Simulated assay, not measured.
Amino acid sequence: MTTYAALLRGINVGGRRLPMADLRGLLEGLGYGDVRTYLQSGNAVFTSAGRDEQGIADDLADALAEHCGFRVDVLVRGHAYLRAVADACPFPAAELEGRQLHVTYLSEPLDADRFAHLDQDAYLPEAFRLGDRALYLYTPDGLGRSKLAEALAKPGPYRGAIATSRNWNTVVKLVEMTRG
Rank of each mutant, 00 (worst) to 15 (best):
L75F: 00
R36T: 08
P125Y: 11
D73M: 04
T164I: 02
F91Q: 09
A5C: 15
Q100E: 15
G69N: 06
R99G: 02
M1F: 07
H117S: 15
N167T: 09
D111Q: 13
S41C: 08
L60W: 03
Q54S: 13
L27V: 02
L137N: 07
P109H: 14
E66V: 14
L110C: 10
Y4V: 02
Q40K: 06
G55F: 01
R114H: 10
L64Y: 03
L23H: 03
A161P: 03
R77M: 15
V85S: 10
N12F: 03
A84V: 07
A149Q: 12
V175E: 08
E53W: 01
T2L: 04
A5L: 03
V45Y: 04
L152V: 11
H117T: 08
D59G: 14
A112V: 14
N167H: 07
E66T: 14
A94E: 15
R129T: 05
L118K: 09
G78K: 10
L101M: 12
Y4R: 09
A84M: 11
E126G: 08
A134K: 05
L110F: 10
A94N: 13
L110I: 13
G98S: 14
D34T: 11
A65K: 11
A122Q: 11
T178A: 12
R133L: 07
M20A: 06
D62L: 12
A84P: 07
H67V: 00
G142C: 05
S146I: 09
V172Y: 01
A84W: 06
G29Q: 10
G69F: 05
L135Y: 03
A63P: 07
N169H: 14
L152W: 11
G50Y: 01
R145F: 13
G144Q: 12
S146V: 09
A127C: 10
A44Y: 01
P157C: 10
M1A: 11
L118V: 14
L118I: 15
P109L: 13
G69L: 08
T47Y: 00
R9A: 03
K154Y: 04
E97W: 02
Y123S: 10
N167F: 08
T170W: 07
L26D: 04
L75Y: 00
A161K: 03
I11Y: 02
P140D: 07
N12G: 04
A5N: 06
S146G: 08
R133M: 12
R17L: 06
A65W: 01
V175A: 04
R133W: 05
A21G: 06
P109I: 12
F115K: 10
G33T: 13
L148I: 12
F91V: 06
V13P: 01
L30Y: 10
L130V: 10
K173H: 07
G55A: 05
R71Q: 11
D111H: 15
D119H: 08
R71E: 14
R179Y: 05
N169G: 11
G69Y: 06
G180K: 13
A5W: 02
G14I: 01
D34K: 15
N12V: 03
Y32G: 00
Y123N: 08
L7K: 00
A5G: 05
E126L: 08
L82K: 06
R99C: 01
D22A: 13
L75W: 00
V45H: 04
V45N: 05
L130C: 12
